[in-house]
Amino acid sequence: MNEPDLHISFAGLSLKNPVMTASGTFAARESGAFYDISRLGAVITKGVAAEAWAGNPTPRIAETYGGMLNAVGLQNPGAAAYIENELSYLANFDVPVIANLAGHSVEEYVAVTELLNETNVAMYELNISCPNVKEGGIGFGTDPRMAARVTEAVKRAAKKPVMVKLTPNVTDITAIARAVEDAGADALSLINTLLGMRIDLKTKRPLLANGTGGLSGPTVKPVAIRMVYQVRRAVKLPILGLGGIMTGEDAAEFLLAGADAVAVGTAALINPTAPVDVLEGLAAFMRREGYENIAALKAAFQGE
């Protein structure tokens, strides 16, 4: 059979395939040292705020069966350095750039949005898992009202499509998804990491200097699949599915659950070429199963 057509349209972007990098696991020069990043559908860059953030103390990384915990704390150089170093370098590649945005308040989210409006960024991904320092440090993404408010404010300021990244650390993710859709989001991405913790049996201290951190890796995949499936049935927005994707088959599973595109995150830490390996694996799966394009694969879901 012919080579499957992997091209998709995602919230107004025309992408050569549905495979992206997940925020926080990709850096243009560093990842580009291992594979041609132009092969990907899009790249999502590390969370960036208007001003530089120092992040958390080390150790920031801990392992656990089937995954890892991280508490990097969104260390980033701020929008100006991001534009100068990362975005300008990415302009050399034929790949759309999605900028992941971070903030401690609605005002900070709006500020970084405005700073990136006149750049080559193709889309924003709003990381609403950050704590809202003006409202007692509760994560924006855990409260439908706060999630809607920050989405609305960024959407008003943005000159690019806005994708909102949902945290799984909520009782009902569909309530947040609906609130964000009503607030004007152009797409959703899910899931962010699951809050976790490990303790060192020798020192009796948490393994992470921050105490808790975000769980990611293959162990979280069933949770992510379930949430994509639920959100697909709750909203009409395009969905970027992520959480534990290691192979092309994992990517196909997300597409069947209702995702329109997928992102590869922790797998790239375990295997630097994982994003392109997932892309090749997805194409091979579609060839093997006889799907001509992504829509045909998605339509094959037999759940209901």
């Binding site: 926080g24 696991t25 560093e30 990842s31 992040g55 990384i61 991280n70 830490l269």
Partner: peptide, 16 residues
Amino acid sequence: EERMGCGYGACVGCVC
């Protein structure tokens, strides 16, 4: 030395 994540500069897990 520091506890690393990716070991190639993508994740910013190991800083000094």
